[in-house]
Design a protein around this nucleic acid. Structure first.
Length: 393
DNA sequence: TTATCCCGCCACCGC
DNA sequence: GCGGTGGCGGGATAA
């Protein structure tokens, strides 16, 4: 295989001859661009079924590439397989439901196995059951778009192959954002978390390659955006969710501008935060950028906080309808305002801020939170003309 | 140098 | 055996 591959490339890349023309541009062949073109073709009214051969022909690519796109799109519910070579287009309307289901599954899983080195890997059976039922009914009932979509071509007994599928990897990658509250994650770190076998470098590299494929497709739909860690400058991806998708259509200019924002100005950039209906108590630091190397430690810390009790967790969600995830401030559970508290001194912002200032275990997070508070303070004085909240260091 | 990811081989599966 | 599917990793390109 290697020989054949390298031979075919020798004749087509180093020397611009053969099938690859002299002005070959890699970007023009990218999976992300291909996905954009695919959506341009099929994301419209009147589109019901999509033929893979047709798609490949119209997009001018080989079938293999269409499989890559379709697998990712199907994993998030945009498509469902109808028959061999034929898919049914569901559209972006199903995405909120899909994300909600993925989040539910991911949260359930993370609560039971966050200490597992591969917290998002163990859900296969459960997901598969849902996929199976989803697929069965999708053959006849298109209203089933609310179910988390089945991954294509995965027989129940092919667990090993299934575990490596692009679709499942896509779902787990998305869960990583939905459930961990991590604002930014590198693909290396994602691969480590999703794979578990971080010691196997070969497998890691393969996983990262697939994550690049997935990330390209997701970012072409504006579900995520590529960015860089502000300190390490390491490449990473930030979750935008449906907000990114909806704003892509209506406010391209705004998004382009926001992509240029610097890390320190992110505080007021709430429009691009993930779409999860977070309440106003959601702190800036809660949405902060986390260095990948801090993820595991913070996961463990937050796991302990979240695991205080199921009832406590339930009440938190009832009150706030919001889940902090593994990066919640450690005192969040203790300082949630009761219904009585909410009536007390609603305008005493300073004491409120002091009472609710998160006490992160991690020094970097504390610094980050201070940074946000400073930014907020300057924003208040500059824009809103209010007194900045004094920082607790 | 490192990050990115295209490309196509080939194993697997159902018919 | 055959065609559809998709995991996989070499190695080229981009940054």
């Amino acid at each position: 295989m290697a020989l054949l591959s390298s031979n075919s490339k020798d004749s087509s890349s180093c020397v611009p001859s053969g099938s690859r023309d002299s002005n070959y541009c890699r970007k023009q062949k990218s999976l992300g661009l291909l996905c954009s073109n695919f959506l341009s073709l099929y994301d419209r009214d009147g589109i019901d079924t999509i033929g893979l051969d047709d798609a490949a022909a119209r997009l001018g690519v080989e079938r293999r590439r269409i499989y890559d796109i379709v697998n990712v799109l199907e994993s998030i519910g945009l498509l469902t397989k109808k028959a061999k070579n034929r898919y049914s287009w569901k559209g972006f309307g199903v995405i909120p439901k899909t994300l909600q289901l993925l989040k539910q599954e991911g949260l359930k899983e993370s609560y039971t196995s966050f200490e597992d080195p591969l917290p998002f890997k163990v859900l296969d059976d459960e997901v598969d059951e849902k996929f199976q039922s989803s697929n069965n009914s999708s053959q006849t009932d298109k209203s089933n778009a609310s179910s988390v979509p089945k991954i294509p071509g995965l027989g129940a007994s092919k667990s090993e192959r299934k575990e490596k599928s692009l679709g499942l990897l896509t779902q787990n990658f998305v869960k990583l954002f939905l459930c961990s509250e991590v604002e930014m994650i590198s693909l290396d770190e994602a691969a480590k978390i999703l794979l578990g076998d971080a010691h196997d470098m070969s497998m890691m590299r393969t996983k990262v390659r697939r994550l690049y494929d997935i990330a390209n497709v997701l970012s072409s739909m504006n579900f995520i955006e590529k960015t860089h860690h502000p300190e390490t400058r390491k490449p990473a991806f930030r979750w935008l969710g449906m907000k990114g998708k909806s704003q892509m259509a209506s406010t391209n200019a705004l998004i382009l501008e926001s992509k240029k924002r610097t890390f320190g100005t992110e505080l007021t950039n709430t429009s691009l935060k993930r779409c999860r209906g977070a309440p106003s108590l959601n702190t800036a630091a809660d949405q902060a950028t986390i260095t990948p190397s801090q993820i595991r430690a913070e996961c463990m810390t937050a796991k302990k906080a979240v695991d205080v009790s199921d009832s406590e967790k339930g009440s938190l969600q009832n009150v706030q309808n919001y889940h902090y995830g593994p990066f919640a401030p450690i005192n969040v559970l203790k300082t949630q305002p009761s219904s009585n508290d909410e009536r007390k001194q609603p305008r005493d912002w300073e004491s409120l801020a002091k009472a609710h200032t998160p006490q992160y275990h991690n020094q970097a997070l504390r610094d980050l939170f201070c940074h946000y508070m400073e930014a907020w303070g300057s924003w208040c004085s500059e824009v809103a003309g209010k007194n900045p909240i004094q920082l607790q260091s």
